[in-house]
Design a protein around this nucleic acid. Structure first.
Lengths: 220, 220
DNA sequence: TATACTGAAACGGTATACCGAAATGGAGAC
DNA sequence: GTCTCCATTTCGGTATACCGTTTCAGTATA
C-alpha cells in the first residue's frame, strides 16, 4: 500500500521515479523517453533504464513505437472504458472475497475513511479513494488480482491526474459522494453478508463511472 | 492467437523459447535459471536473457528469490484457485461484450469447435479449449483483458501440463464435456442475448473447475 | 516554394567487462 | 561424525563499448 520508494535494484528505483513523474504530469503524455537521456537524468546507465521502461510498458504508462522508441502513453477515453470494465468485473468479486477477512480487521479501512472525511484537496481524495480500494483488493488475498490492480491504479492515477489538471472534476462534488459511498461499503463489511459487499462495491463503481466525465480530449 | 515464434528482439525470442520449454515440462518446476547458463544455451548474451526472465516473471512462469535468482515457478493449488477466480470474474463479462461482434463473425469459433470435436489427444483438446476462450476474449475488444488472459493462459498451460504428465485427467472424460459446453456457448452467441452468453460462460467455467482435480501435490 | 536526397547525429539492441554479494564445498575443531 | 567457519566460485547488478538502423536537418533540384 505504501508507495515503497525503496527498491533493491536500480531498475525498480528508476521505474518508481519515472512512474511518479508520469502520473504527476511532469512527464506529459507523448513525451519521448530516450534511454540515454533518461539514464543521464537519473544518474544511472542505460541498462536499468531499459528494464524500467519495459516494466512501465507492462504497467500501461509507457508505450513503444514500432522501432522501439519509448514514450509516455497517452490514455484515451477508450482506455478508460477498458479499465472501468475490468474494475467492474473484478472489484465486486474482490469485495466478496475480502469480506470475511475485513470483518475481523477493519482498522485500516476505518482509518482511510476518517482521512477521506477530512481530506481537503482533490488530490487527497483521489489518493485515499485508490487506497480504500487497494485495501479491499489486498484483503481478497489474490496475488494476481493485486498485481493487476497495481497496474490499473497507475493508469487511473495518470487519467485522473489529467482530469484534475484540466479542471474537469472538482473536490466539492467528489468528496461527499466518495465518503458516503465508502461509508456504505464499510457498513456492509461490518454488518452485511459477502454478497452484500459485492453488490455495494458494484454500485460504488458504477456510480464512480457516472461522476466522471469522459472528454474526447484532454491536454496535459 | 498464433504462437508467434517470430520476435523482433532477442529478448522476446528468448522469452518465447523459455516459455515453451517451461509449459512443455522440459524445464521442470523449481529449475534454476542462471542467466549465464541460459544465455549460453540460447546462444545470446545475458542482457536479453535477463529481460526475458523479467517478462516471464510478470507472466507468472518464473519467480525470483529474494537474492534475485530466477527459477521456474512451481504452481500450487492455491495459484490455481486464484486463476480460477479471475477467469470466473472476467470471462463471463468478456463473453457478454464479445457477443455482438461474434454474432456476425463466428467462423473462427466454429472452426475451433469442429477441430475440438475431432481432437484425439488430451493435449489437442486443451490447446483448442484455450484457443476457444482466447477467441472470445479477443472479440471483447479489451486490450488489457487480452493481455491479462495471455498471462493466465501461460499459467494454465503450465498447470494443465503438470496434470497431464501425472495422468490426473483423461481425454475420454474431458473431450465430450468440452465439446458439449462449447457447443452450447456457440449456440448462445448465435441465437441468444449477450446476457445469455455471459451466463453460459459462467456455467462453463464453473463446470470446468469441477472436472479438474486439485491435488495437494503434483510432480513434473 | 515544395520536394527529394544525403550525410551526420541519435538511438536502440546487444555483447562484454567489472564488481560486490551470495552460495557452496571443504577443512578444521569439537 | 557433526558442526562451524572460511575461501573459492558462482551469480546477478551495473557500466561501458560497439554496431546497425532510424531520424532529421540541411541542401540541392524541379
Amino acid at each position: 500500500m505504501e508507495t515503497t520508494p525503496v527498491s533493491s535494484t536500480l531498475a525498480e528505483a528508476a521505474a518508481a521515479r519515472l512512474r511518479s513523474e508520469i502520473v504527476s504530469g511532469e512527464l506529459p503524455s507523448g513525451a519521448r523517453l530516450a534511454e540515454a537521456v533518461v539514464a543521464q537524468r537519473l544518474g544511472v546507465s542505460r541498462v536499468p533504464v531499459r528494464e524500467a521502461l519495459v516494466l512501465l510498458e507492462r504497467e500501461g504508462l509507457v508505450e513503444f513505437t514500432a522501432t522501439g522508441r519509448a514514450c509516455v502513453k497517452a490514455l484515451s477515453p477508450r482506455d478508460f472504458e477498458e479499465i472501468f470494465v475490468l474494475r467492474l468485473a473484478l472489484e465486486p468479486v474482490a469485495a466478496r472475497l475480502a469480506a470475511p477477512t475485513l470483518k475481523s480487521d477493519m482498522a485500516r479501512l476505518e482509518d482511510n475513511l476518517a482521512a477521506t472525511r477530512e481530506a481537503r484537496s482533490l488530490r487527497e481524495v483521489t489518493t485515499l479513494d485508490l487506497e480504500f480500494h487497494e485495501i479491499i483488493i489486498a484483503a481478497s488475498a489474490n496475488s494476481r488480482l493485486l498485481r493487476l490492480w497495481c497496474s490499473l491504479r497507475s493508469e487511473l492515477e495518470l487519467w485522473l491526474g489529467g482530469l484534475q489538471r484540466s479542471k474537469q472534476i472538482q473536490t466539492s462534488a467528489t468528496q461527499p459522494e466518495t465518503v458516503a459511498s465508502h461509508e456504505e461499503i464499510v457498513r456492509g463489511f461490518r454488518t452485511g453478508t459477502p454478497a452484500d459487499c459485492e453488490r455495494l462495491m458494484r454500485r460504488h463503481i458504477l456510480g464512480w463511472r457516472e461522476w466522471l466525465p469522459t472528454p474526447e480530449e484532454m491536454e496535459p
